[in-house]
Design a protein around this nucleic acid. Sequence first.
DNA 1: CAGCAACTGTTTTTT
DNA 2: ACAGTTGCTG
Length: 821
Amino acid sequence: MVQPSESSPSANEPAVVRIAPPGTGPGFESGSSQRSVQFGHDLPAGEDPTTHGLNPQQLEAVTYRGPALLIVAGAGSGKTRVLTQRIAGLIRGREAWPSQILAITFTNKAAAEMRERVEEQLGGAAEGMWISTFHSACVRILRREAEHFGFKKNFTIYDSSDTKVLIKRLIKELQADVLGLTPGNVASKISKLKNELTDVDAYARDANMSDPTERMFVELFRRYTRELARANSFDFDDLIGQTVYLFRAFPHVAAAYQKRFRHILVDEYQDTNHAQYSLIRELTRAPQPEPDDYLLGAGPTGIEAASLTVVGDSDQSIYAFRGADIRNITEFERDFPGAKVVLLEQNYRSTQNILSAANAVISNNFDRKDKKLWSADGAGEKIIGFTGYSGHDEAQFVADEIEKLHSEGMSYSDMAVFYRTNAQTRALEEIFIRSALPYRVMGGTKFYDRAEIRDSFGYLVSVVNPDDQLALRRILNTPKRGIGPATETQLATFAETNGLTFRDAMRNVEGLGLGPKVTGSIRALSDLLDEAAELADTGVVADVLTLLVTRSGLLETLRNSRDPQDEARAENIEELQAVTKEFEKNNPDGTLIDFLTEVSLVAAADDLDDTSGTVSLMTLHTAKGLEYEAVFLTGIEEDLLPHKMSANEPGGPAEERRLFYVGITRARKRLFLSLAMTRAQFGETAVAMPSRYLQEIPAELIEWRQSPGMVNSRGGQQSRALNSTGRRGFSNGRGGYGGGSDQPPALPRPEKKAWPNQVTNQVRDNSTLELVPGDRITHVDFGEGRVQQVTGEGAKRIAHVIFDAAGPKKLLIKIAPIEKI
DNA sequence: CAGCAACTGTTTTTT
DNA sequence: ACAGTTGCTG
């Protein structure tokens, strides 16, 4: 069996899988204080490595044997440890071969981590085990079985933006935009339907076809489905849904997997959607006897259904928006009669203060099983609260506190900043860059979303999967080679009328009667793709990419451009070449298809880099499953958390509260909650109100450095740094707010734009500014100060300054808003 | 067909 | 604020 691609790290961070040394770096949920005793080789003689060091509930979860087991694992209760020891125990006790194990995790990174830890327990005997995400596992199955239902095994995967491009084209063709249908809303509706395993025909049966918008939507859905099939492609949702379809339509195919996988384990079960649930149901069915078995008189197969272990926490269900159905976990016992349930409530991660805050917040969600996390490790430090005047002010607080923790000996990689929306990174990044703080934004998937990278992938996909018309159209005139929309349409029509693929139309371009110049361009492109395909059969991925980007002129066009940004774009392509070389190194037998599959399925959390020594920035969603010594939860404001888009949705506010809960429970020792009074949005500054969830935390757990009540409308004139130091103890014992009131005081209403965005408007370049210790400087926010020391080289020179009022700061000289006096 | 200026809507979260 | 798109001109 081919080794799965999920055992290699994401192509974005292509080095070897990194495991943080105990106690450092962002760990996966593992019960940090238990870590030192978890591996067999540390044990005294005679101890059972599978069960050593477990509490009674964990022990039960590891050793229980039966058809179905639900482990209700509160945050930080050591569930990953329980899962890995359970797997190791099954294999060590000869109850299962590695190849009979299927473990499903939420991200590739979590899968790699789990594999690593199982191997460590077993001394490397995990060969043949499937530990992967739902999507990766389904790709593996589909590649092997695609030919059963009209796909080829070289299929490619459409990500959400590919999907949108295709739908956009269809909307244009059908002029569906006049009915208010946009690529966004059509794509999300189709995705929802697929998550419910509803296909076009099923939907059309119940649709109100007298409604023109509805009728149009059905037509779009139908064409979208047809186009995907024609392009030999699956979208994200298809990967799951089509696998379920495959199993249901071809019982003998399903039986092969039902027989193979004897133990199925699913992590983060609370976030499974209906399609994923159905997949698990199919896999845990007892295999049906095949026709041949009857002929041989074998009767029923006699093979029992696989055993199923699921781990989850309904309080951490945060993906309802993409179809996750909390009932999958709440009704588990009904779905699998005779299921055993084990509750893990002891927390090995956080201090009691942090857990008490988390418990208090989540207890406001009614309709949940009461569950209280507790720790044996003591109260710990208080939670720190802070209210800034603006998002930048808040960011400055975060940066200052990070510096402080760092100077006290905490590694940057042990700290993380969370936020609700990706847009909030801007202010944080600006301040962090200025403060010369090493940071890294997780997810955002920025690299693979850049146009030049997508173009490069367009070439690669066109080579691997010539049926993909979308990829071909993307590269047809990129770089510019004189093939406009008119020519593109002619090619498409020619293909249509002659029953050819778009790619074949290109191969026969001479038959179209186009101008000699255009014909020549298409011929050259077509030949290049053929040559690359030949190379892909024998050569390595990196060479194929190099051939394509050089011979197509993509790279050269960018290099010769006079747009200064194109230089960076060319560098991005070179970085992609480096990524393919790394892939090559990690997967010596990896094909181009493997490479494309891997990058298609990287998740936001997959590019975590444990050893990089940087602060991690990420959304609350990405943070799930991770833990850090110190956590900063930013933007704890109404309309942001809970987000205003969630207000109308049923269950919205409760889900947002779970999101807050997830954020709180990521912290081991230190937790910081911050908000701003005004926040820039759409370039305009709007007033923000403290989040309702803040009041749910008992006041005695929070020490407000600057409470919402302390901030007044004149505050914008003062620098935060002037009045934030040394004040403490504003709790009054009742509400969560300082300043003497029980309820969050009504915030003042400053005029719009009362405090124009002080940071972003200032584009400056101080790269020529020379500073030496002793110089007096003035800073836009911090006032006057004296340079103590200058470190770093060139563009990275950092001034260490003690400001008269704001105290010590580090500034990146190139971009800091400073002047020499 | 390419390049430029003006104009739009967009931001909730993600495999 | 910004990117992506439309519409005009050469």
